[in-house]
Each structure stands twice: as structure tokens, then as C-alpha cells.
Amino acid sequence: MTSIYTSEAGAERLSRLYREHLASWPVPSEHRHLPTSQGDTFVLSCGPEHAPPVVLLHGSSTNALNWFADAPEWSREFRLHAVDLIGEPGLSAPSRPPLTSDAHARWLDEVFDGLGLETVAVVAESLGGFLAVDHASRRPGRITRLALLCPGGLGRQRREMVLFAAALMVFGRGRAAMSWLCGTSDIPEYARTVSSHFRPRMEKLPRFDAAALRRLAMPLLVIVGDRDRMFDSAGTRRALERAVPHAVVRRLAHTGHFLPRQTGPIADFLRSREKTGNRGSVGIGDPKQIRRG
């Protein structure tokens, strides 16, 4: 059960550190383990119980802590459900079904059902963005509003960059590899610890075709960094312009895969009730605070 970790001791250390961080979650929260066909799934929920629900899906090599700094603002108006993705360094099952199958969509159905959510807004990042688009394209209508941060599966995955970073890690340069790949030297200590004990998914993400993207009829906000070394952000913009013309794409200048925190813009998007118009690509300014748990 520790195959996604480098060792049993590493798995135990990350679990202990994660639980310590969860104990300092900035707003009152509750923890659940939902049974699914892929194993138990951990969900942290916070915010008013009867407020509009929002599911949060983090990226690779992280967990619900990804949303630590966003939670205080978002939970004022929304009931947040931060899901630990399966196969990632959280408290969910280590299962990693093929990304080319419908297994993750069925898993998310089970998570939504377990939370009692017939429809829901979703905020997702990187790998979580890929899973959100995959689900939305297979289950039209269930995700009612979608905000994506540097999502996978739209622009070309720069796999050669990932492999170069992996090679640096083999030679003991993990911190330098993370900084180079993510486009910032501001890597939190917890993230560096995860990189020392966790084996991330290395398979290439499938790309969504135009037919799948055209099924994204919900209001859609996509925020990318123009210097993302993991995904071709210009390709992401082009794919959406062609297939999802109502999507709003915001490009952050001088920014890599770790984005400046988008707490305010995403809150505005979530609380907005109008249909997103065809506004195309929008460039915005330089980052200050890097997002990560």
C-alpha cells in the first residue's frame, strides 16, 4: 500500500506531517472518509453547511493543504469540500487507475454522491484540472461552474521538462528541480518534504479533443502562467478558443506552473450568477504570493 511512496517510513512521516497541518486548518472543519470503488477518499469540509457547495481538486504531489490560504475567504460564502485525490500524498486510497479510462469520472461520481451533491461548482488545479475536465466532458450538467488553474489535458504536456526535473532529483537536486520546473524558488517546506518521499505519476496525460471540450457548457474560468514548464499555456488558450469560446482565459505574465494565489478572482467567479460571455484571453500582471498548501 506504500508503492506511491519511496518507503514505509516516508509514508508515515508524510501522513504525520499532513495530520499536523490539518489540525491548524484556518477555519472550523470536519473530516470524512467516503467509501468508493477505488478505496476510501478523504474530504475536508468547511463553511456554512447550507451554503452553495464547491468541490476543490488539488494537483499532483499535494493534498487538501493546497487550499489552506484560500479557505478563510471562500468559506464565508460557500460550503467547501477539499478532496484528497486518490493516488496522491493525502489520506485517500493510493489507487491509480488509468487516466485514459472513465475510472476517475466514476470515482468522482461516487465522491459527489457521498457528499450528497447532485450538481456542484468545482475549482481544480493541474492534475485536478484534468480530472475535472474529464468528468465534466463525460457527465454534462453535473458540474455547474468550473475554475481551472494550469489544467492538464488541454495544452501539450512538456514531458521532456518533467523528465529533466526527475533526473535532477536522482542526483540529489530535488529543491533545484522543483524550483526550475514550477517556475519559482518559493517552494514551501512541506512541498519539499513531499518530494523527498513521494513518487508522482509519470505517465503522459491524455489530451482532450475538440468534441470533449465542446461539452463544457458551464461557465468556465481558466488561469494559466505564460511560462509554465509543465503545460503549453498558449496551447491551452488556443484549444479553448476553438472549442469553448465562452471560456474566460487569464494569462499571468512572467509566471510558471505555481500560480500567484487567485483567491479573490475565483471568489468573484464563484459568486457570479450570469452566464460567462465570450471574452477570450486576458493577460494580467505579475505574481506575488505563490499558491501551495
Score class of each variant (00 low, 15 high):
291 R>I: 10
83 V>M: 07
171 F>L: 14
111 V>K: 01
72 P>K: 09
59 G>M: 00
119 T>W: 02
241 E>C: 08
55 V>F: 00
92 S>W: 02
17 L>G: 09
100 T>P: 05
244 V>C: 14
20 E>M: 12
51 A>N: 01
149 L>S: 05
145 R>T: 08
39 G>V: 03
136 A>P: 09
245 P>L: 04
230 M>V: 11
67 W>P: 02
100 T>D: 14
264 G>M: 08
247 A>G: 11
293 G>K: 07
108 L>C: 06
76 R>E: 15
223 I>F: 04
200 P>R: 09
258 F>E: 03
33 H>A: 15
97 P>Q: 03
118 E>L: 07
177 A>S: 10
110 E>G: 06
211 A>C: 08
158 R>I: 13
19 R>M: 05
216 L>F: 04
111 V>L: 06
271 R>Q: 14
89 P>K: 00
55 V>R: 00
282 V>N: 02
108 L>W: 02
58 H>M: 06
85 L>T: 05
71 A>L: 00
225 G>N: 12
271 R>V: 04
170 V>H: 11
157 Q>P: 13
135 H>C: 06
141 G>Q: 01
208 F>V: 04
284 I>Y: 06
182 C>M: 15
253 A>N: 07
249 V>W: 00
224 V>D: 08
140 P>A: 06
5 Y>R: 07
72 P>F: 10
202 M>W: 07
284 I>R: 14
41 T>L: 07
136 A>C: 12
122 V>I: 10
262 Q>M: 10
133 V>G: 04
155 G>C: 09
103 A>E: 11
28 P>T: 13
67 W>Q: 11
110 E>A: 10
142 R>Q: 02
25 W>V: 02
111 V>I: 04
22 L>I: 12
26 P>K: 03
29 S>T: 12
126 S>W: 03
207 R>T: 14
188 P>E: 10
168 L>H: 05
220 L>T: 05
140 P>D: 06
76 R>S: 13
217 A>F: 01
270 L>K: 11
152 G>M: 08
209 D>K: 07
53 P>F: 00
14 L>K: 01
164 F>R: 15
116 G>Q: 03
41 T>S: 14
266 I>L: 05
222 V>T: 15
229 R>S: 06
58 H>F: 05
262 Q>E: 13
120 V>P: 04
106 R>H: 06
16 R>D: 08
88 E>I: 05
281 S>Y: 05
66 N>T: 15
84 D>W: 03
228 D>Q: 09
161 M>V: 08
111 V>C: 05
176 A>H: 09
71 A>C: 04
49 E>Y: 04
204 K>N: 08
105 A>D: 08
